[in-house]
């Protein structure tokens, strides 16, 4: 039978995850109310419910889609990071560190150039790009588990290569890229409902599938030989995981372009707080990812009026030190 200590630990994890969930809801309302024009909570609620409210255009038409998209991007990148860290058995893996981000945007660019009128194909392009890049890195770095050095180096090289291609495309086909400015600039400026609906189907499929993965992920973490002996077909499962992480990171990249850090730090922070069991790690990452990107985007929106600071800059400023601090204090506790 389970001991008291163990039950308390479990309860604490559940409470943490639920609190994060509530904070996410809370953050939506707070972020809806603040900005160049400030609204009270009452005005926000009436803007959401009443079509004729004066705040409707800004709150419903501009802030809400941006907040929801930011949240979705956060969820996608954190889950993709969680999965990649498991697949590569390596805590340094994330869509940006292994070059998936630039590979995905490369194919995204190609899609835009080849089919200039069909910008709704952009997520498909970036998902395929993400998938191709992940498989490439995996093949380059895999030898009975992925060596961290090889993974990072090949990620760096692949990143640089695709980055160069991207610059070439931007220089020579600038006229054809006009209608996809968020994707080009990166960040979430001027994101509207269109962008949200564009990625929602892909992102939600990816997120839903993740609900079925925790036990299998836990088994995979025991190493291939043990996982095989427990009846998990590791080769097939890895392939599926790479596909799902590509679906997730590709959808995020299609609206937000090059956002780094989220996919790396959110899984880490979650792991430090709730532990490495994917049953808790996935939900914790979902909420933390949502919260982090939404809050950082809102800060970027209001910090330097009348201009905006890109969410990825804010993410680096807030995310990096917080992460370092957590790593230090938590690391010590675990050793004691």
């Amino acid at each position: 039978m389970k001991s008291e200590v163990c039950r308390r630990k479990e309860a604490w994890r559940v409470i943490f995850i639920l609190t994060m969930g509530l904070l996410c809801v809370f953050s939506i309302f707070v972020c809806l109310s603040i900005g160049t024009i400030k609204y009270s909570l009452g005005e926000v609620v009436s803007a959401l419910t009443d079509k004729d409210s004066p705040a409707r255009i800004i709150v419903w038409g501009m802030r809400l889609p941006r907040i929801l998209t930011a949240g979705l991007v956060g969820i996608c990148l954190s889950l993709a990071g969680c999965i990649l860290q498991g697949v590569m058995r390596n805590n340094l893996a994330s869509p940006s560190t292994i070059g998936v981000t630039s590979g995905a945007s490369f194919i995204g660019y190609i899609t835009l150039v080849a089919f200039p009128g069909l910008s709704y194909l952009l997520p498909v392009g970036s998902i395929l790009g993400a998938f191709g890049t992940t498989m490439l890195i995996y093949a380059l770095a895999y030898q009975k588990g992925v060596s961290p050095v090889k993974m990072l180096l090949s990620g760096l090289a692949v990143s640089a290569m695709f980055g160069a291609f991207n610059d070439i495309i931007k220089t020579f086909f600038a006229d054809r890229l006009g209608n996809a400015s968020h994707f080009l600039v990166g960040g979430l400026n001027n994101v509207m409902w269109n962008e949200f609906w564009m990625i929602l189907p892909y992102a939600s499929v990816g997120i839903l599938i993740c609900a079925f993965l925790p036990t299998k992920m836990n088994i995979l973490m025991l190493g291939d030989e043990t996982a095989n002996s427990l009846g998990l077909r590791t080769e097939v499962f890895r392939f599926i995981l790479i596909a799902i992480s590509s679906l997730l990171s590709g959808s995020a990249i299609a609206v937000a372009g090059l956002i780094s850090f989220v996919g790396l730090i959110v899984p880490h922070i979650s792991r430090l707080i709730v532990g490495s069991d994917y049953k808790y790690l996935f939900p914790a990452s979902v909420f933390l990812g949502f919260l982090l990107v939404v809050v950082c985007d809102t800060i970027g929106r209001i910090i330097l009026p009348p201009g905006e600071v890109s969410v990825s800059i804010i993410l680096s400023f807030i995310g990096a030190p917080f992460f370092l601090m957590l790593l230090r204090t938590r690391g010590q506790k675990q050793r004691d």
Binding site: R89, M221, G223, E225, S229, G275, S276, D277
Partner: peptide, 12 residues
């Protein structure tokens, strides 16, 4: 089958 080398997450 129990392999010779084991991997496990540190906090399991």
């Amino acid at each position: 089958y129990l392999p010779q080398v084991h991997f496990s997450p540190p906090d399991i």
